[in-house]
Design a protein around this nucleic acid. Structure first.
Length: 257
DNA sequence: CCAGTCAAACAGCGCG
DNA sequence: CGCGCTGTTTGACTGG
């Protein structure tokens, strides 16, 4: 009866109002794909802006260890595809150590490998992620420092942050898009239902023009009033609750009084 | 800096 | 098992 109407209305209202402020957990596929990585949680916010600002403090704890590991293994400037694949398959720390990786620097490009694409190792990725969570943009000093820590060129750090921002934004847009689709569907259903209700009421009004045109009753005080507040005490008519409570618009009595 | 794009690296699948 | 194919991820570049 009227209760389901109210339920639907409330649902729609909540969805509409909650949209801009409801935080949505979005387990990031991209960030969790590397099997060897610590579970870095990217939590895009549904609220406008400020995405990627949340982070877990305890992820910083290993940074120094990673850097030690990183510094121990860094120094190589060539790049090995086979070792990269092996690392991903085995997913162990020791492979990380024996893996040959590094940067394609301006200095040591030999021409043949100039177009070889660098793949950041997990230490580098983790530190970049950590840094990104703290601030999604870098000032020149931060960029230099990060590049120095990671043995990368500042340009590479800069590019990584640009890509990270862009892909975070894209991901957030996709989440928002899905939410808007759901919201649209809900509102469409609600609109359809209300249209039908209007039609029903119109049909009812045609069938019983006198009642519908002249009388209304508040369900809380059960007083009948005519149009323009006229006196109904001498009216021979009695109330027809059936018409009034078809969908119970008085679920909130104050609206009728 | 951002949006758009390219292309290397990689993952996953089916097939012989 | 390995090969080819396809789709995805991601480092890098370009133009505005």
């Amino acid at each position: 009866m009227g209760s389901d109407h109210d339920d639907i209305s409330n649902t729609v209202l909540v969805l509409g109002l909650g949209f801009s402020s409801t935080p949505v957990q979005n387990p990031s596929q991209a960030d969790d794909q590397r099997p060897n990585n610590k579970p870095l949680i990217f939590e895009p916010s549904l609220s406008l802006g400020l995405c990627g600002e949340t982070y877990r403090n305890n992820q910083v704890e290993k940074e120094s260890d990673w850097l030690v590991l990183y510094r121990e293994e860094s120094g190589a400037s060539s790049f090995s595809n086979a070792s990269v694949k092996r690392e991903r398959e085995m997913g162990s720390e020791e492979v990380e150590i024996e893996r040959v990786w590094g940067r394609v620097s301006d200095e040591d490009d030999d021409g043949a490998n100039a177009r070889k694409k660098l793949r950041l190792n997990k230490v580098q990725s983790a530190l970049l992620e950590e840094s990104f969570k703290q601030h999604s943009t870098l000032n020149p000093k931060q960029k230099q420092e990060l590049a120095r820590k990671l043995n990368l060129r500042p340009r590479q750090v800069e590019v990584w942050f640009q890509n990270r921002r862009a892909r975070t934004k894209l991901k957030q847009t996709e989440v928002d898009c899905e939410l808007l689709k759901k919201c649209y569907e809900t509102l469409t259903d609600e609109n359809r239902r209300l249209q039908k209700e209007v039609q029903d009421l119109k049909a009812l009004k045609l069938a019983q023009p006198l009642y519908m045109a002249t009388l209304t009753m508040c369900p809380s005080c059960e007083r009948i009033s005519g149009n323009g507040g006229g006196d109904t005490s001498n009216s021979p008519l009695t109330m027809a609750p059936k018409t009034h409570f078809l969908r119970n618009p008085f679920s909130n009595p104050s609206t009728a009084c």
